[in-house]
Simulated scan of single mutants.
Amino acid sequence: MKDSAGPDFPEKRSAVVIVGPTASGKSAVAMELARSIPAEIVNADSRQVYRGLAACTSLPSERERKAVPHHLYGFLDPDEPYSAGRYAREARGAVLAILKRGRTPIVAGGTGLYIRALCDGLAELPERKEEVRKTLSDFAAERGPAALHRRLAAVDPVSAEKIPAGNVQRVVRALEVHALTGRPLAEWHRSGGKPAPFESFFFGLRWDREVLKARISERCARILDGTLSEAGELLAEGRMTSGPAFQSLGLRAAAARLRGESSRKEFARSLATDTLRYAKRQITWFSRDARVRWLDLSEPFDPSAAAGIILREIPVPAGGAGRRPVSTREF
């Protein structure tokens, strides 16, 4: 494994931000780093905030969450909307509390908008207006997500390019903002917000595309049955497939499989295809951020080696002695 050159980092208390596409090993590297220094992990995955989605979102295990403090994982009801603005407030609160305890916050996840909101801030968007949201949600239920997405493309093509048609929650929010303000959501985002009151070290996990594709394929096979089970539990609870939790990769396709609308093979293919597309969007998003220092990974994956490179680049809080030795193999 090798790391590419990046900016010099300030010698002051900071957060570590670990980014990359799905299945790149972010959680594993975060855990290795947290075992080496006094640290706590903060979620930056918009799907891992929901309860009951441990399999389909590859949530850190209960044992891992007991070994190292984790924040903003699996705490939200599946029907409760969650925005980047709310995430920024809650994640900043978690990061500042960790810093106050004299520990290092490790932010790990692949939701680029959440990480931007946390570190750079977002413009103050208008409050949600339920009647507008209901009208848009009803339109999606009657005409389909693709029709709703075409409406977004007509008024905010930049946001439409970034938001997949299947993510009805985000499409509704973008259209809501435009309806309430007359300005595209993309324009609001460009206007920026208040940056976080702490510095951040950005590290990205990068794989050869074919290797990443194989890792995604392996993950999809591993979570297939769990995703079906979680979709079944949500449906049994009366959750609507238009709700927030069902925006998670694979859940709608799993619901279709459970209704007999597709075969197991078709569901597996859909899950893998959608996950690959999502990974490509993540790579595009993070590749545009010049702050990210990329770590080029290869199989066999050694998360401790990646954590070792990160350790050499960051200041460790007082009391952080006792690092484990870094692997000496060729990176």
Rank of each mutant, 00 (worst) to 15 (best):
S36P: 08
Q169E: 14
R215A: 05
E230Y: 08
V168Y: 11
R63H: 06
A140H: 12
V132C: 08
D120Q: 15
A141W: 02
Y82M: 03
V42A: 04
P38Q: 06
D45R: 06
A236V: 07
L175H: 14
G144P: 07
W207E: 01
D3T: 10
E237Y: 00
R269Y: 13
V68M: 03
D8R: 14
G243F: 03
I310C: 08
R143N: 13
F286L: 08
T22A: 08
G144Y: 08
R128A: 09
E233W: 03
D45N: 15
V49Q: 07
A91N: 08
G121D: 03
M31H: 12
A186M: 00
M1R: 09
F198I: 04
I106N: 02
R151W: 14
K100D: 05
S83T: 15
P184V: 03
A91M: 11
D156R: 05
V42S: 08
K134L: 12
A318L: 14
A179H: 11
G182S: 02
I115P: 07
A165H: 10
N43F: 08
V29Y: 06
L113Q: 10
A279W: 12
K129G: 03
E131H: 04
Y114E: 03
P197H: 06
A108S: 04
Y73W: 07
P197Y: 04
N167M: 02
L53W: 06
E40I: 00
V155K: 13
Y73D: 01
P315D: 08
A30G: 08
G319E: 14
P69V: 00
E330Q: 09
L276I: 03
F201I: 03
A305Y: 13
E261N: 10
Y114C: 05
T284Q: 13
L258R: 15
R259L: 07
G93P: 12
T284Y: 03
G204D: 04
